[in-house]
Design a binder for these strands. Structure first.
Lengths: 224, 224
DNA sequence: GTCTATAGTTCGATAGAC
DNA sequence: GTCTATCGAACTATAGAC
């Protein structure tokens, strides 16, 4: 038996429980029960709850972001003239994340990530900074190259809105299946990928119409 | 003294604490301390923790969605030919939500909402269903009217991606301020509103290129 | 309406046998 | 490496005085 057999089953169980209940709502007792091991064994293998959570993030983000880097590099290597299309760059960003849904862990990890990205306590911020800021900087640079006419500030706005859309769509809460009465399938990786790429590509290009628009507009304020 | 003085300070305190620590991470003790009242008083005024959380959602969503309905109606009433622009419809959806940031509670409530929208436990699902599905259906109908050429399924995809982008951008974790080294200000309501409207309008219109695309595509699968 | 006090759970973490 | 047992702290909720 491999020395890490129990550790893996702990990590797998923790991933499911964290996805369902969030960080604070998850107890070490429940993880131990789900993993079929004694509670003390979690501390032996994974130290604290906080460290266990980081191990979960590290395990999956490393895989996804390695594929992203490979495919992003391939975009630029294979592009005629050295500059790929915006769609190709977006695909290398979106596809590896959404396609993790093919695996048993994909849905769970997406839900963990969606909560993580929308939290700003110290623990969440540190994890995003450590495991996702580097890849973000690489994609922002790539976007600047494929959209040379777009002002730099708009590239940042566009990256914020694109990642917000991708991460939150990935969470797959089933809401849009409910609202559409099943007309569309939120769980289809391929269908979601093409919509996200198409939407983001047009959204990003559209931001060029905003060049120089940094002052407060004169729009009427909502009487909130 | 108004009969609801203590209750309001409890709700205000709970809003801050829930925003910072999430539902599970929030304790009634901490809320009582933040509100400056005895813990038992929370149960007297707000019953259980779950009911207190619903009171928070109800209090703000009612305000924001009432304004949205007013402004959406105004779009259609004032439109030449009875059909407003896509941008006007999106503005009526996005502006009231983002502009809540002008108030002391806006930032806190946005963070609560972002976590809520990305959770799919029973409690979260029930609250989204009760307080946000009705307004969602109204906007989906409005989008069908202003984008009559867009296939119905794409309207649902577009609504999913748009709300994902808006809700997650609203969370204002400060990440894009960090990544851009302060080049852009995530906290500027007006700047975020114009970007979200522009991005979503172009994103939604772009989905029309996908008409009839419901089968799995032949794109290479990532070697995840 | 507001308080103190506490019942009854559940939590993260650790000690120590095997 | 894996277990049982348990400590000390935190939690939600309620009882009951004022």
């Amino acid at each position: 038996m491999a020395v890490t057999r129990a550790k893996d089953s702990i990590l797998d169980a923790a991933e499911r429980i964290f996805a369902q209940h969030g960080y604070s709502g998850t107890s070490m007792r429940l993880i131990a029960e789900e993993a079929g091991v004694a509670q003390a064994l979690i501390h032996y293998h994974c130290k604290t709850k906080e460290n266990l959570f980081e191990l979960i993030i590290e395990r999956r983000s490393t895989i996804i972001n390695r594929i992203r880097r490979q495919e992003l590099k391939q975009c630029f290597d294979e592009a005629k003239g050295g500059i790929p299309t915006l769609e190709d760059v977006l695909q290398s960003f979106i596809r590896p994340a959404i396609e993790s849904g093919r695996y048993s862990w994909g849905r769970e990890f997406s839900q963990i990530l969606a909560k993580l990205a929308n939290s700003d306590d110290n623990r969440s911020r540190d994890l995003v900074h450590k495991y996702y800021d580097p890849i973000a900087r690489e994609y922002i640079e790539a976007l600047k190259r494929v959209l040379p006419e777009l002002p730099e500030a708009e590239v940042y706005w566009g990256y914020l809105i694109t990642t917000s859309a991708v991460v939150s769509s990935m969470a797959r809460t089933g809401r849009i299946n409910r609202l559409s009465a099943g007309m569309l399938d939120e769980d289809s990786n391929e269908q979601m990928i093409v919509r996200l790429i198409q939407f983001a590509a047009n959204g990003l290009r559209g931001l060029s119409a905003l060049a120089g628009l940094n002052v407060e507009s004169q729009k009427t304020v909502s009487p909130l």
